[in-house]
Structure formats: C-alpha cells, structure tokens
Amino acid sequence: MAVAETAGYPVKLQSGDSANGVATIVGTLLGQNFENFPERIALAKRTKRPVAVVSTDTDQACTIMFRDHGAVVHDGIVGKPIVTVRASVDQILDVSQLKMKAGGLWPVGFFTKRGMGVLGQILRHKLVVKGLLTHTVTSLRTIALVSVV
C-alpha cells in the first residue's frame, strides 16, 4: 500500500491497511513531507540503514527503510536499525516540530523553547535517541525527515 506517490519516491506500508498506528502516521508524514519538501528525497536516499520509532506509551513501533526508489515502513522493529527513537506520543509530536536545516546538520529547532525541552528530556533519558552519539548525522537526518516544518 502506497501512502503517497511523490515525485517518484513512494512511501509504502509493508503491512498495508493493517499497519499499526505509528507506522501509518510515520508513513503518512514521510509521504506528505516528500511532497511538501522534495529536497528531502535526496536526504532519504542517503539514509542507507534502517531507522526506527518506538512509541513508548502506545507500545507500537515501526522501522523505516529508505531505498533509492522509495521508502518502506514496517510494523515493529525489523533488522538492526542504526537509529531508534524511543519516545512518548507527546515527545514524538514535539520532535516532529523541530526545524532542521542543512539536512539536519544545522538543528535550529533545538534552539527553541520546544527544542530545549526535547534536549532536556534526552539528557534525562526520558526521550531516548539510540544512535545519537554513535550515528549523530543519521540521527539528526531522521529528525529532519519527519519534521513538519
């Protein structure tokens, strides 16, 4: 099931209509982002290894695999994601509103009230971005890909 057919870079849900909620929302968000910000397609293509999002308060997860010709969003954790964001729904909503420039390398969103809040939660391990220190570029790129701004 294609969530969005965008500029030759479709986003598909591996489980189709029965995909879990977080896979559906992430897939829809990515598809709409590639439509609104086509420059992010190149960013997705540079993300060679899977990344995952875990919604801690709904016990749902998804793994995103970016390919040259589109992305596939799987239910649950699939393979060995290089970056895993473990966050509550509210934290996911906050992270997706952080403005990132230069493909995530200039994370301007972190220098806002909301961004400072996110950073504080990362420092207190309330929000975990596994891979942030070892794969910083991919971590920031992941945030840039799901950002709505």
Partner: peptide, 12 residues
C-alpha cells in the same frame, strides 16, 4: 488523548 489516539491509529 487526541495525540495518542492518532498515533495508535484510532483516529484516521
């Protein structure tokens, strides 16, 4: 909560 229902796929 609306956000949680959205992420759970209950609100479509």
């Amino acid at each position: 909560e609306a956000g949680k229902m959205l992420v759970m796929g209950k609100v479509k």
